[in-house]
Computed example of a mutant assay.
Amino acid sequence: MTPTRPRTVADVMLSTPKTHGPDATAGDLRALFRDDHVHVALVVDAGRLLAVVDRDDVCTAPDDTPAAACGAGAERSVTPGEDVEVLRRRMREQGSRRYAVVDEDGMLLGLLCLKRSGRGFCSDADVADRAAERRCAG
């Protein structure tokens, strides 16, 4: 019997997360966060991650503040080869549920999204289903 390899971030990450350009402002992201389903904003420039921004990061910033200046980068990002079970434990201990997934050059590859239950990770299919439900309800 062949031993199974640990699942990695690449196995479970969202492969096409929504992104925002370098011109996004704190005001733009505050408007985005009015949607309860949006938890973080990924600010990128030419595919390179500039910042991962959450609601708390922009709540007191003036509207015209560059969004990238409000968020964090390295401490909110992981690489695709990391063991996902190790990260799941760390995320639960820290109370965090989102990490940007970047390559060694800082290029955005995806988003690791821990489900609210903490038992699994959001999938591209989950996101597509939720978007379809919103279109039907709207």
Score class of each variant (00 low, 15 high):
D126A: 08
L109V: 02
T16L: 06
A132Q: 13
T25N: 06
R134L: 15
A131S: 12
K18H: 08
A26T: 14
D57C: 12
G21V: 07
V78I: 15
A31H: 09
G21K: 06
R135S: 13
R97V: 08
D63G: 12
H39M: 11
M13T: 01
R97G: 11
D105P: 00
H37C: 05
R135T: 13
L111A: 00
D11A: 13
G21L: 04
G110P: 06
A51V: 02
D56T: 09
A31M: 07
T8P: 04
A24I: 07
L114R: 01
A128Q: 14
A100W: 00
V52W: 04
D124F: 10
A74Y: 01
M1W: 04
V44W: 04
S77G: 02
K18R: 15
S117G: 10
A72R: 15
A31P: 01
E93M: 07
D36H: 08
R5E: 14
R5F: 07
L49M: 01
R30G: 10
E133F: 12
R98K: 08
A72G: 09
M107D: 09
P62E: 10
T16R: 14
A125F: 11
T65N: 08
K18G: 03
R88M: 02
V43Q: 07
L111M: 08
C59N: 03
G73P: 00
D36E: 15
R76Y: 09
V43F: 02
S117M: 08
T60W: 11
H39G: 15
R130V: 08
D64V: 11
R48H: 15
R88L: 03
D23E: 15
A125E: 12
M1S: 12
G71D: 04
V58W: 02
V38F: 05
S96F: 13
A74K: 08
L108Y: 05
A61E: 14
V12S: 04
D124E: 04
L109P: 03
L50C: 02
A41G: 09
D57I: 05
D124G: 08
E133W: 10
D54T: 13
R134I: 04
A137C: 11
D28E: 07
S96H: 12
R30Y: 13
S117L: 08
R134K: 14
L111Y: 00
A132I: 03
E133R: 14
A24Q: 01
D54W: 00
L29M: 14
V9P: 00
G47H: 09
G95A: 13
A137M: 05
T4Q: 11
G118Q: 04
H37R: 13
A128K: 11
E82Y: 03
A137R: 12
D11N: 09
A51Y: 05
L14D: 06
V43H: 05
G110Y: 02
L42W: 01
A68V: 06
R34T: 12
D54M: 09
A24P: 13
G27P: 10
S15T: 15
S15V: 05
V53G: 10
C59M: 10
T60P: 00
G106N: 03
E133I: 11
L109G: 04
A26P: 03
